[in-house]
Design a binder for these strands. Structure first.
Lengths: 194, 194
DNA sequence: AGTTAAGTACACCGATCGGTACCAGTTGGC
DNA sequence: GCCAACTGGTACCGATCGGTGTACTTAACT
């Protein structure tokens, strides 16, 4: 899903400039931020002429929006579908994030763009809402007394850990996971464990 | 402390251009972000000539650093010193943040600047560390079993709520406060309340 | 082969970026 | 009153920003 996607038009003939552009966007936006990445540099990395870039994305904002839209299926990938884990284990597995993981691109974009009306900001809200919904759903499976509340709480923990990892350069997900464990055990009537 | 400060040199004569510049920085950096605020606009708002601005701050980065340094005594102001509250109440009071409060400027700067070596990023780390330390200290007063852990946890909750308030446009501090209450009661051997 | 669309190379646009030079006015401490 | 720091106005610098125009090449499918 991260690759190809064939673009909107039915048939394509050239050799995927669009994919190279989006791929370069991921790399550069992640490493340098959005506003510090110019279209010239982006096109150079993507090995695409500027003209071509602007034929695929009529504006940089449009490219940014598409760059974010792409993440939807990718992030938090298999965690919620791992049937080998109990719902409770799945909730905790959401906090096992490798140290190298950069700050959530949606947070990064929302802060950088600084405009709630920007389509990218809307995607960010959608994404955050979706994550909270999946956590809520899993919390319900786990038998939580108030799944909506637990889902929202866990989502807040993930974002807090993500931003502190970036700002402080120190591992914060273990801290968040510890909190999560407490909340989960508190929310499930008969703690089914240990 | 937010005002005047007389600058580094011994005596000053003119009428505070420096303060107007820093005041305009707070306003503009908060409302538009750092990178989206140009020096021209900043000088216009501060009603200061560009020449003067660059006599006080030899570089924009230097201004940004000073802008952040200024917050140290301001943010999280009286909460930790309110002797009318029990330590436990003080910990919870840290989550009573008005809805209008913008995203923590240190987080905003760290994300925007995207450079851990930037002096502003260093200030951000210092500030976050200081907040965690004060929370830890108060947690110790409250009799928490593991004050360091509780302090770090509460700091994470605050940042999570701050960033979600910004990204989602929805009040997240009540959610964080609810988590905090659970953590605090869990951490204090004999819950002294209700 | 020939049509057609995708991609390329490169010069160029106005706007804005951070930052400076120069010159004139103002203010305060001595 | 004098000197020096402080302030302002304004034009300007090179670089980069996002974005375009034009003419050319390449590749895919019929």
């Amino acid at each position: 899903m991260t690759e190809l996607e064939k673009g909107p038009m039915g048939r394509r003939r050239g050799r995927g400039a669009r994919e190279r552009i989006l791929s370069a966007s991921q790399e550069l936006f992640r490493d340098q931020g959005i506003s510090r990445t110019g279209m010239d540099q982006l096109c150079a990395v993507a090995q695409v002429s500027k003209r071509t870039a602007y034929q695929h994305f009529s504006t940089k904002d449009e490219l940014v929006a598409e760059y974010l839209r792409r993440f939807d299926p990718d992030v938090m990938p298999g965690v919620f579908d791992r049937t080998d884990l109990t719902p409770r284990e799945r909730l905790l597995a959401a906090f096992e994030i490798p140290a190298s993981t950069p700050l959530c691109p949606y947070i990064s974009a929302a802060v950088e763009l600084h405009d709630p009306e920007h389509p990218a900001s809307q995607y960010a809200r959608d994404y955050k809402t979706a994550i909270a919904a999946r956590l809520t759903e899993t919390a319900r499976e786990a038998g939580a007394a108030n799944p909506e509340q637990l889902g929202e709480q866990l989502a807040l923990l993930i974002d807090g850990a993500s931003v502190r990892t970036r700002v402080l350069n120190s591992e914060s997900f273990p801290t968040a996971a510890a909190i999560a464990a407490v909340l989960i055990d508190n929310a499930i009537p008969a703690a089914p464990e240990s």
